[in-house]
């Protein structure tokens, strides 16, 4: 589904495609999430790596791109005990390295120490990245270069946006979503999380000041952003501006 002339959603996946760059953009993989949970006493079996690999392969069947851009949080925090997560991240980046000509990774708030692995697989690591008309970032900080940038498009992750849909009998369904719309003179795209486990923000329920990303809290009026829900079962669900979806 096309969001703008230059950016489209790879239906029904949490991934966008930018033709100009021949790039797939994803965010928030949170590999190793289960390990951290287990460390805290919540024993979620490890399933995410497999799931994310499956999704990635399905995406590739639809879009054969030369570049992949990961907008941050490739991994969840590393736990102290398990080497396993390190292996997961390494395997994932290894797969990307083999499959794509170029692997560009934005640093997220969970990505300290990532450099060792990215280097090994030929991936490039950035705090922020500007390419042609596009500005990529994770979104946990609002870097000074963002407001100065002359790019027409800003693409970020971090928020893990989802929409809560209600009906009159009291049903509630949560659907992961893209957010897109104007941010001053630019166009902003917020990606849903690639991770199937890490929770996110129900952006039509929580007040603006409770949002995670300062970019969304301070630099844009989130209520004016539109949403596109995605679900494997149905595909894309185009929704109007968030203010219309407030409960």
């Amino acid at each position: 589904m096309k969001l703008w002339e230059k950016i489209e959603i790879i239906t029904p996946y949490p991934a966008a495609y930018i033709r100009e760059l021949d790039a797939i953009v994803i965010a928030d993989l949170h590999l190793g999430y289960e390990g951290i949970m287990a460390e805290q006493g919540i024993f979620v079996p490890k399933v995410q790596f497999e799931q994310e690999m499956r999704t990635l392969k399905s995406i590739l069947e639809q879009k054969d791109a030369s570049t992949i851009i990961v907008c941050g949080d490739v991994k969840h925090e590393f736990s102290e005990t398990s080497y396993h997560e390190f292996v997961e991240v390494s395997d994932f980046l290894g797969f990307l390295g083999e499959r794509f000509d170029e692997v560009l990774v934005l640093k997220g708030n969970h990505d300290n120490y990532l450099i060792r692995i990215t280097r090994k697989h030929g991936a490039k690591l950035f705090d922020e990245l500007e390419m042609d008309d596009f500005y990529f970032l994770h979104g946990h900080r609002a870097p000074p270069s963002l407001s100065k940038s002359r790019s027409g498009y800003v693409v970020m992750g971090h928020e893990h946006p989802s929409i809560a849909l209600f009906d009159e009998v009291g049903t509630k369904e949560k659907v992961d979503c893209f957010l897109y719309g104007r941010m001053k003179d630019k166009r902003l795209l917020v990606l849903p999380a690639f991770s199937t486990l890490a929770g996110g923000s129900e952006v039509n329920l929580i007040p603006r000041e409770e949002l995670l990303s300062p970019v969304l809290r301070e630099m844009t009026n989130i209520d004016e952003l539109k949403a596109v829900g995605i679900s494997v079962e149905v595909g894309c669900l185009p929704l109007p501006e968030l203010w219309k979806l407030k409960v």
Binding site: L165, D167, E168, T171, V175, E233, V234, P240
Partner: peptide, 28 residues
């Protein structure tokens, strides 16, 4: 109160989506 959800998630989502869109249409 509790809600009995339709078995078919696809149908459920679509119906919910339509209901929400209709409600918004009315409101705005």
């Amino acid at each position: 109160a509790d809600v009995i959800l339709m078995e078919d998630r696809k149908k459920r989502l679509l119906q919910l989506y339509e209901a929400v869109m209709k409600r918004i249409g009315k409101r705005t």
